[in-house]
Design a protein around this nucleic acid. Structure first.
Length: 387
RNA sequence: GCGCCAUUAGCUCAAUGGCAGAGCACUUGAUUGUGGAUCAAGAGGUUUUGGGUUCGAGACCCAAAUGGCGCC
């Protein structure tokens, strides 16, 4: 019988990897980016929009869906894929992160975590076993273990939290039964190389289908995050997918691929789209800025997304200023397309063996533009205003 | 025609005769295992006009303008 999950490493360039991860709902070309659809919905988008952007993986959330509408209800509808009308691969986060960031009156002990709902204050308790039950009911292709995402700089606390997270990982592994669902472990340890390596070693022995690096992009500097990846990736299994949770910004993704990461999820592109920040190769563009009021160009000149093929910056700005929901949707369509196009370029460059060069030129253009080009644009705009 | 009330930032409104402010709107930032939220910073004033009282007036007095209400 054919195994449900096959990870194929096609090529490497330095630490960077070009690969494919086969799932029951299709292959995921890696490095991959997963837009976040916490509530079984990528905000403002529909499955056909995601398909149009070339999306091969989306993320949903155990904590949120357990609270509302409930995992048993989703199970009755045949699982997440059928419930939300998306037949591509889905990953669910375990809810660990959300309990710590959203839940009220959280109480941790060896057995699990008690918390109150951020929606209605009702009392709940997550254990590794319950979270596995919920994720199996939700039915994503990839489930995540319950972990604790602690302050990455608090070494004393991390020491204790790490042991518990490891015991929870083991319990998740033992409780997980679905063969058509992959279970990923989550390496923790903050910014400390010895803790990360200990975590990677411990989890490697449990033989998960894939490995996530958690607890980053939560308060440490970018330099600390990159250094932590340098010191962690060599210690996770080579022939398994590597997933950097919660990252990220375009520059972070390029840097993380360079250090050996295969997959990402992040709310950033969709969230900032709803606030008018649109991604371009020349850096972020805030479509609400006054300088775009009469700008007839598309958001991004060479972009093939529906938004850029169809509408001017002036029209988008108008929609945002007027609070029209279509603006949020068109902005989200563009940002998701931008991220997935970035991943396609990364894969093409890895295939061609020119990723290192791409990293340099992409970052130079993306970051320089933030400081220089946009400053010049702004100066020109202000000069025009004075005239 | 007479009487009463009102007039302060783009809008809605504060401000014992003693430094002219807030909310919204506007201009910029921020946003990393979702937050259409929120946060941070900034700009914005001949207090309707003209006189007067006072050491000092957005406030008190006189007149005008504009708006609202009431009564012949």
């Amino acid at each position: 019988m054919q195994p449900a999950f096959v990870f194929t490493l096609h090529k490497t360039e330095g630490a960077a990897r070009l690969s494919t991860f086969q799932t029951p709902h299709g292959p995921i070309q890696m490095p991959a980016f997963a837009p976040v659809g916490t509530l079984a919905n990528v905000k403002t988008l529909e499955p056909r929009d995601l398909q149009a952007a070339g999306c091969e993986l989306i993320l949903a959330n155990t904590y949120h869906l357990y609270l509302r509408p409930g995992h048993r209800l989703i199970e009755k509808f045949g699982g997440l894929h059928q419930f939300m009308g998306w037949d591509g691969p889905i990953l669910t986060d375990s809810g660990g992160f959300q309990v710590f960031s959203l839940g009220h009156q959280m109480k941790l002990d060896e057995d699990g975590v008690a918390f109150r709902s951020h929606i209605d204050g009702s009392r709940h308790r997550f254990t590794p076993e319950l979270v596995m039950e919920i994720e199996e009911a939700l039915g994503p292709d990839i489930a995540m273990v319950l972990d604790e995402c602690a302050n990455p700089l608090d070494r004393n606390y991390l020491l204790q939290a790490l042991q518990r997270t490891h015991r929870w990982a083991e319990r998740c592994k033992n409780a997980h039964t679905r063969q058509d669902q992959a279970l990923f472990g989550i390496v923790q340890g903050g910014v400390f190389p010895d803790l990360r390596q200990e975590s990677a070693r411990f989890l490697s022995e449990l033989d998960f289908t894939g490995y996530a690096i958690g607890g980053l992009a939560v308060g440490e500097t970018k330099e600390e995050m990159y250094r932590t990846l340098d010191e962690t990736c060599p210690f996770v299994p080579v022939h398994k997918p590597r997933y950097l949770m919660g990252v990220g910004a375009p520059e972070d993704i390029v840097e993380a691929v360079y250090r050996g990461i295969d997959m990402f999820d992040c709310v950033l592109p969709t969230r900032i789209a709803r606030n008018g920040a649109l991604l371009t190769p020349d850096g972020r563009l805030n479509i609400r800025n006054a300088q775009y009021a009469e700008d007839s160009q598309p958001v991004q000149q060479d972009c093939t997304c529906y938004t850029c093929r169809t509408f001017s910056r002036a029209y988008l700005r108008h929609l945002y200023k007027a609070g029209e929901i279509t603006g949020l949707r068109l902005g989200t369509i563009h940002n998701v397309h931008f991220m997935l196009e970035l991943m396609r370029q990364i894969r093409a460059r890895l295939a061609a063996g020119t990723f290192a060069e791409f990293r340099t030129t992409f970052l130079a253009r993306y970051q320089m533009s933030n400081q220089v080009v946009r400053h010049q644009q702004r100066e020109r705009y202000l000069a025009a205003q004075r005239a």
